[in-house]
């Protein structure tokens, strides 16, 4: 019986490897072309495809950085500010909210929890109109804060923190802190936050990335050039006369927008891939 089964397994393994390699190739190939083309100049790119890198990497980079029409440097800074603040606000306040619902008993505890679960998957786009009107009335159009302040209410991050807390934060510890005379906020900041570090790290990465990649809202809120984030700059490439562009610059700008994320991802991939399922939401 064992022999009979060993054979089909062998064939299946080969098929599995072939399909896996094709899929991995698909995932990597486009980024390979991107990186290769970012190292070639406009004319080399126009001449046709080549799998070998060129020599214009530095020049393309300098060209993009010094292009007066594409404010890449301020774009990078703006993207960093918005994404960093989003990650910070989303993780801290999600911890706070989940701790409030985990450690205390109060009348509205259950309704509050159910409510957050219900709105968890609601896209922000459905209230975009009202949001823009509100931001306008608050005189915050064309500023960065409207892009990260809403992160204080991040239901999906909350749900992750809540699941993590339930299995990793013993109430005995909180009780002990109370007996030692630690105030509630102090307990939260000094004991709970450090214990939540692994969850905070994973969610900070996810919040950072999704904010870094966000295009819909920033494009509607921001209008002046020096406040634009990277996705808006990329979109601007597409809307201007595409054919007039130096293609080396186009590929370089895309590279600048995605390579930092890829590098961080490769360094932390172990935690990120584990984090996808660690999150209660997705499990």
């Amino acid at each position: 019986m064992r022999n009979q089964e060993a054979k089909p397994s062998y064939a299946r393994t080969v098929i599995a490897y072939i399909i896996l390699i094709i899929l991995a190739f698909l995932c990597l190939f486009f980024f390979y072309i991107l990186i290769v083309n970012a190292t070639r100049n406009h004319f080399e790119i126009q001449k046709g495809f080549s799998a070998l890198p060129g020599t214009s990497l530095v020049r393309n980079f300098e060209n993009v950085m010094n292009d007066a029409n594409i404010p890449v440097q301020s774009g990078l800074v703006n993207s960093l500010i918005v994404s960093g603040m989003s990650a910070l606000l989303a993780t801290y306040f999600s911890c706070l909210t989940s701790y409030g619902l985990y450690a205390y008993d109060f009348k509205l505890k259950k309704p509050a929890f159910v409510f957050i679960l219900l709105i968890m998957a609601m896209p922000t786009q459905v209230s975009a109109l009202g949001f823009l009107r509100l931001v306008d009335r608050m005189h915050m159009l064309d500023t960065l804060p409207p892009l990260f302040l809403p992160s204080i209410a991040a239901p999906a991050v909350f749900y992750f923190m809540h699941s993590y807390m339930q299995s990793n934060l013993p109430m005995e510890l909180i009780e002990a802190a109370r007996i030692d005379g630690s105030g509630e906020f102090r307990t939260f900041n000094r004991i709970v936050i450090p214990l939540m570090k692994p969850a905070i790290a994973v969610q900070a990465i996810f919040s950072f990335v999704s904010s870094w990649n966000n295009y819909f809202m920033p494009a509607l809120v921001i209008s002046s050039n020096n406040k634009k984030t990277l996705p808006i700059l990329i979109a601007a490439l597409r809307s201007a006369d595409f054919l007039k562009f130096d293609m080396g610059k186009v590929y370089m700008l895309i590279t600048i927008a995605i390579v930092p994320i890829i590098i961080v991802y490769i360094l932390l991939s172990k935690y990120i891939v584990a984090g996808v399922t660690l999150g209660g939401v997705k499990e």
Binding site: L34, I254, I258
Partner: peptide, 18 residues
């Protein structure tokens, strides 16, 4: 796993531009 998850983190607008 690392390779097939990667595209999920890429900026969709940059990916589309690419």
């Amino acid at each position: 796993k690392v390779v097939i998850y990667m595209p999920n983190l890429i900026m969709a607008s940059a990916f589309a531009m690419l």
